[in-house]
Design a protein around this nucleic acid. Sequence first.
DNA 1: CATCTACTTCGAAGGACTTCGAGACAGCCT
DNA 2: AGGCTGTCTCGAAGTCCTTCGAAGTAGATG
Lengths: 127, 127
Amino acid sequence: MSKQAALPVIDLNAGTPCCPPLAVSRIPAETASVLAPAFKALGDPVRLQLMSMIASAEGGEACVCDLTPAFELSGPTISHHLKTLREAGLIDGERRGTWVYYRARPGIMRQLAALLVFDEAPAVQAV
Amino acid sequence: MSKQAALPVIDLNAGTPCCPPLAVSRIPAETASVLAPAFKALGDPVRLQLMSMIASAEGGEACVCDLTPAFELSGPTISHHLKTLREAGLIDGERRGTWVYYRARPGIMRQLAALLVFDEAPAVQAV
DNA sequence: CATCTACTTCGAAGGACTTCGAGACAGCCT
DNA sequence: AGGCTGTCTCGAAGTCCTTCGAAGTAGATG
């Protein structure tokens, strides 16, 4: 399970946006299929909080042992959510001694944000 | 839960971000519960494409009659997805004569983007 | 080596989501 | 009015998701 099935045209690890914002041009089906899972992974309150805790942690990384007690959920459940975030390419995990540390991957976050954000001037359009 | 407000402390219609980026401070549970559904709504390839088509449409709005034939899905299914986007506060629908037109709501999009995007140097966000 | 702790994987139960066809409702056209 | 077209709601079938406890693996410690 080292790779997600068919790896896309789109590099989720890239630091730069892969495509113009949602509001500028229609995104193709393949792009949607690749990026939707990332939004989906953020579409759960627990995972959104986990993501936030990891991204805002000191040193940019958080230990599972700090994450788990912050929720009223079992260890396995938190582990499952972390796996979901990992498979969506949003975080990376690393074992160092006894503990496992997770760290956010800013590249894909920037891509998602770039897709969403757009200015007042909505693409040309003579009305 | 001492919070009494029926739902959000957060105004999804606001033009300005409701909270500091994910990576700057940990978001509270209530914020996560309010914003997660919006990400969830974008977490489906069909809805992501619908959102894109609506946001990038000429005049800022798109007719269901243009949206439906772009997918190999039944009318009711597209209608259901549009309803999901509507309930997530991402789009607004309006009937004008025979057709129903949908238009994106930029406020919440900006909020989601603001949550995601963060610079190397986390700072207080300018307005 | 035995054992303890930290975390993950496995298997299962219950609920939520996607999709469809059938039917209902709204507005146009003859 | 009557019929036609566009869109939404309803109910059902199949699939996926969330959550758990139990069991498995990795590393530290005695």
